[in-house]
């Protein structure tokens, strides 16, 4: 493991902890897209099936378990928690997330490394993760006034993706035969989706004002 990969994983972990902190302590999920959270739960559930079939390291297994647990916990809070669910912006969070799932699945059936059950699901999870942030970005754009925790959450998610790109570049130059076209391309698409948000996030941070997205 290199420093970029570790920084990426830690940003990812931190972003989820921020979101859990917000939901658990403030008992509010205002500004958080349930659609995106449901997509992430599906991403982790389809990607980490290998938790039962292979072992890479204790670190790997613990992180996978955390991502699975946290994503389903967040969905549970937003759907069923007595107080939290009332703060959910249901009317604003209208992105048709089901329309993302089928194309990603068809693409995974067509473009994959190996045609096995686990491999196709793994590939599906990569494609779906690439676009899973879209409902969240649309919701931010709609509400425009972004509260700090939600803004930081999306920022650290984007940081996680950026560090992964540095990690791939590093591995490409330091390891033999390290090519992962599918991972790279879906990762690049995913990171590109954050570019616009990053711009406004950094701008508001430099002017030390509240993050506001243009309509």
């Amino acid at each position: 493991m290199n420093i970029f990969r570790l920084a990426g994983d830690m940003s990812h972990l931190f972003s989820i902890l921020l979101l859990l902190l917000k939901i658990h302590t403030i008992k509010s999920c205002a500004g958080v897209s349930l659609k995106t959270q449901e997509l992430y739960a599906l991403v982790f559930a389809t990607r980490y099936l290998d938790i039962f079939t292979g072992y890479i390291s204790l670190y790997n297994t613990l992180m996978k378990m955390f991502f699975l647990w946290s994503s389903f916990t967040i969905v549970w809070y937003m759907r069923y928690h007595n107080v939290v669910r009332r703060s959910y912006d249901k009317d604003q969070d209208t992105f048709r997330h089901y329309f993302l799932i089928l194309p990603c699945f068809i693409l995974a059936l067509l473009v994959h490394e190996k045609f096995t059950f686990l491999e196709v699901l793994w590939t599906f999870s990569l494609y779906l993760e690439a676009v899973a942030i879209l409902p969240q970005l649309v919701l931010l754009q709609r509400t425009r006034n972004v509260d700090n925790l939600t803004g930081h959450y999306v920022f650290f998610l984007g940081a996680y993706r950026s560090f992964y790109i540095l990690n791939w570049i590093y591995r490409y130059f330091t390891e033999q035969n390290y090519y992962k076209w599918i991972t790279w391309i879906s990762g690049l698409v995913q990171t590109a989706l954050y570019a616009d948000f990053f711009y406004y996030y950094v701008k508001s941070w430099r002017n030390s004002e509240r993050l506001q997205l243009p309509a």
Binding site: H12, D50, G54, I56, N60, M63, E113, W122, Y164, T183
Partner: peptide
């Protein structure tokens, strides 16, 4: 080897 560490990232 290829199989084993092809999915070593999260």
């Amino acid at each position: 080897e290829d199989d084993e560490d092809s999915h070593d990232e999260l």
